[in-house]
């Protein structure tokens, strides 16, 4: 067992029994999370992120394959895992009729943290989470962002080496999201905690060291965010056509155009040579009486890379079928 690998799965499969047959939620996922890393499991809703997290934690049984945390098997060493990891479920799920302090204390006691340790740790932890001023407030009265911070504090009270966060910023405003991610950054820097986070937000994926793209139960790519973005061939042009639909129909057939994605009223176009193809596209559209506003080359972001990879995946699947 490699000491540096904290979470690992091998050909993990999870099927749910339904009325007529079985639904495959995880379809042979193999992943590794190394110590000190922030691993982002990225994918659209229903991709199987939550199920993967739950199986790794031993909250759900697996159908086949292997999964372990810190060398402990998810199914066999369930309690040893639970003493060593922190977890925030997707639905905020701390008792709402307990105060902030009572919640943190509850989880500390349940995790067997001694009273002396509690007195030392809890004030620091609340300070860290920015909740020092709210110790007597009921958890149900906290804002969405503060609830998530409280959940983080509760999941860290036993100083776990790993935390697993399932869409921790779901339903949280952008400012609080940024704050929450800053906390995760501090956590990694100051304590070297390994962080495994599921998220549908591509901007959050950029803040991870390592990203797994999950789609329809499969891990379709995993690498550093920079490498993932390089997986998409070509460079990216962005512009706003004066007449959207005809432009969107016309552009894909032009020479040198690799892929077209829509982005609001904009078109995002992967091309082999941005300068040359940019001019050609403008000319081709002008011939149809369509003007291009703000034609420019932009950095490929996680979002475009992800859409592109998913498209290739579905195209590959339908070719095979």
């Amino acid at each position: 067992m490699d000491e540096q690998v904290v979470i690992s799965t091998q050909n993990l499969v999870k099927q749910f029994q339904v009325k007529d047959g079985a639904v495959t939620a995880i379809d042979g996922v193999t992943l590794q999370v190394r110590r000190g890393e922030t691993y982002g499991l990225i994918g659209p809703d229903g991709a199987g992120k939550t199920t993967t997290t739950r199986v790794i934690l031993g909250l759900l049984t697996r159908t086949s394959g292997q999964s372990s945390i810190l060398g402990h098997d998810s199914m066999r060493d369930t309690y040893r895992i639970r003493e060593r990891v922190g977890y925030i479920a997707q639905q905020f799920a701390l008792p709402g009729d307990l105060t902030v302090m009572e919640n943190v204390r509850f989880f500390a006691r349940v995790q067997g943290v001694s009273s002396a340790e509690q007195r030392r740790r809890i004030p620091d932890l609340l300070e860290f989470a920015g909740l020092s001023g709210f110790t007597d407030r009921l958890a149900s009265r906290l804002s969405g962002g503060m609830k998530k911070k409280l959940a983080l504090a509760c999941s860290l009270v036993h100083e776990p080496q790993v935390v697993l966060l399932d869409e921790p910023t779901l339903g949280v405003d952008p400012v609080s999201r940024r704050e929450f991610w800053n906390l995760l950054g501090d956590l990694r820097r100051e304590r070297g905690t390994t962080i495994f986070v599921c998220t549908p937000y591509m901007d959050e994926a950029e803040r991870c060291n390592w990203v797994g793209l999950m789609y329809e139960g499969r891990l379709i790519a995993h690498d550093s965010p920079g490498k993932i973005k390089q997986m998409v061939p070509g460079r990216l042009l962005e512009f706003k056509p004066s007449d959207f639909v005809p432009a969107w129909r016309l552009v894909p057939d032009l020479p040198g155009v690799l892929e077209v994605q829509t982005y609001g009223a904009m078109l995002h176009i992967f091309v082999d040579d941005p300068d040359r193809r940019g001019r050609e596209i403008e000319a081709a559209l002008a011939a149809q009486g369509i003007t291009c506003e703000g034609m420019r080359e932009i950095e490929t972001r996680m979002e475009e890379a992800f859409i592109s990879l998913i498209r290739k995946q579905s195209a590959g699947a339908s070719d095979a079928a």
Binding site: L59, R82, Y87, L94, A151
Partner: peptide, 12 residues
């Protein structure tokens, strides 16, 4: 409410 999941993942 969903607190069960949070409790199940503790050593209780």
């Amino acid at each position: 409410v969903g607190t069960m999941e949070q409790l199940l993942v503790t050593p209780i």
